[in-house]
Write a protein that binds this DNA or RNA. Structure first.
Lengths: 349, 349
DNA sequence: GGGTACATTTGGATCGTTATAAAGGCGAGG
DNA sequence: CCTCGCCTTTATAACGATCCAAATGTACCC
């Protein structure tokens, strides 16, 4: 005893063992709280751990035990508040469970996605949560992650070979129902000429939202003009730029269901430029309920998707799968909630 | 050859060695692209790697080499777009450099911060980037991370024992200069009664911004009424709630330098409630240049802090330090840029 | 033929931990 | 005194990679 801690090297379990004259095995048992060790011995070891400032080397333990204590979280756009909240939710649950989050952000590039997945796989995560970049291919992702590590697909479907990915779990938002609710709400307000504005047909969430919109329109016996379906990059800037296309057809819409909040806020600016006041001359809805939606002028009717809760849910789903890989893959559809605010006015008289 | 890959177990370097009848050492050399191996042998090994679907086990390699290939990123509030962008920037650089990001989010709780740091340390990161929770104590953090792993403090100072943390690197925003620039701009617009609104005195960034404000006011020979210095929680909601306090003194201000954009946007709402139109009856500035600032009504004059660039910079700083721990600690102050928009009008006549 | 230089390959120890089976000490019972 | 069982501790061999020194092969020159 009275040994000085080693210099220029981390304190290991052997240092502790030597420091209080027991075997490495005993120290290991103490670390894991085994009831086998005599409580007198345990006290001595714990004192020594403190004295030398021991830090557990989980990588070494994981190597020996063939286990893992990390989950990879790969997101197509961390800078988007929706995914940032999602990530916070994931990390919250993983942290509570003793897992560590390996972060990877792909910036919506499929090449980077493959590179990031490859790099993360080398660290042997117990599972993967992936929100794929637009245009991701199932086969390529499968070959990057291998067939063994469980994967949870979040938010978006991937394209390509269905067989390649039919053993993955899935967590999606109820996009179709959300868009249907928004559309039905506008119809109930008295609108008949309703557009669907924004988003990329390349993304599954956009197709699903369009489907919900169509469902509501058909259900109410309303027809949809081709000029009412306008694509744009789902950000504010392009939403402003493309908004004129809404009014190029023979009948101008009096309302629009927007792909998401960013698009809706962009459309608001576009409307202003045409001399239309959103929430009075034109009704619109968003999707996501980002922080801005509640405080825009007018406040935006939208669908709350509670991304932090989704993050928690995703973490729980992947942990369940890690614990028991046997059950068949599961697809979970998270509910969304319509928040009615001033932007979805009745049609102007 | 023609061996089948192992079942229920990951493919290891030994499997490859056995599969093409060379030693483990040779396979290892191939993996690391050593010029020592015969190119014919290399081809055979590489073919076998592909055939069996080998995945490199970086944890095992790191154990043997006593190296690390991860950096811990611990943030007080991931859900905040500022930090989300920052994290995206960090991950971008780390990914490019072959490091992996260990994420930890503390939700502004010092207890959780210590727990998260402890858990991440067990994974042996090469370095730590920490944006501390409010009220973090230097001594406690030091005992959680140990004295060996390099740490970069971002965005906030920690309280307590200076000696405990004087070997940490630091990256801060030029808060004082930013607030001074904003204040000087309002003064140049003709304002004399300028308030400093929002933020917590507990945070170092708030104290620095206040200092910049005071500096500009003193420099212009303007006096500051106590009622013009109002604290609030730095979010929109509390900013609305506390805004009335600005007008309780004997002289009402005609302009305000706000702690950040969220506070400024909240104050805008508060002004509306008093019948004042921001950008016409009252001038104000923010700090951060969040996405909303450019599109609020009126657009917000603010200080751009380019969080993604800060993230990249932080990653580069910590990697430098990891590569060479010897040089004395460095404090880096990142510049901020004043963006003049419509909210900072001249005083109403 | 023997020696030397060079290119390539390899066995074995090792990183820090855990699993396993076995050993040691000790009191009780025969 | 020996055996048995119980409690506690430990030596040893892994985990999957890398380092090191040493061993091959083989080509060339004297």
């Amino acid at each position: 005893m009275g040994n000085t801690p080693p210099v220029g090297r981390k304190v290991t379990l052997s240092d502790i063992a030597a420091g209080c004259d027991v075997s490495r095995a005993t120290v290991s048992l103490v670390l894991r709280g085994s009831p086998l060790v005599n409580k007198h011995t345990r006290a001595r070891v714990e004192e020594e751990l403190r004295r030398q400032g021991y830090v557990y080397n989980r990588a070494a333990a994981n190597l020996r035990r063939r286990t893992s204590s990390s989950i990879a979280l790969v997101l197509n756009d961390l800078a988007n508040p929706f995914f940032a909240e999602f990530a916070a939710g994931v990390d919250e649950i993983l942290g509570d469970t003793g897992y560590v989050t390996l972060l990877g952000s792909t910036g919506e590039s499929t090449e980077r996605e493959l590179a990031v997945l490859g790099s993360l796989m080398e660290h042997g995560p117990a599972g993967i949560i992936l929100s794929p970049a637009e245009g991701s291919d199932a086969q390529q992702i499968l070959s990057a992650v291998g067939g063994v590590t469980p994967l949870l697909l979040f938010n978006r479907e991937v394209s390509g070979d269905v067989a390649a990915c039919d053993h993955w779990d899935r967590l999606f938002l109820d996009n179709q129902r959300g868009a249907r609710l928004a559309t039905e709400h506008l119809i109930a307000q008295g609108h008949k000429h309703i557009a669907f504005y924004g988003g990329h047909l390349g993304s599954s969430s956009c197709r699903q939202r369009r489907a919900g919109y169509m469902e509501a329109m058909k259900g109410a016996g309303l027809t949809v003009e081709p000029s009412w379906m306008v694509e744009c990059i789902p950000n504010r800037l392009d939403a402003v730029a493309q908004s004129e296309h809404l009014f190029n057809g023979k009948t101008a819409p009096t309302a629009a269901v927007c792909y998401n909040d960013a698009v809706a806020l962009g459309l608001m600016l576009g409307l202003h430029q045409r001399g239309l006041q959103p929430g009075r001359d034109f009704a619109l809805t968003g999707f996501d309920d980002i922080a801005e939606a509640a405080v825009s002028a007018p406040p935006l009717t939208t669908l709350a998707v509670t991304p932090r809760d989704r993050g928690r849910q995703a973490a729980e789903l992947i942990l369940q799968r890690v614990k028991d890989p046997a059950p068949p893959p599961r697809q979970t559809i998270a509910p969304v909630q319509l928040l009615i605010r001033a932007s979805s006015c009745p049609p102007a008289a």
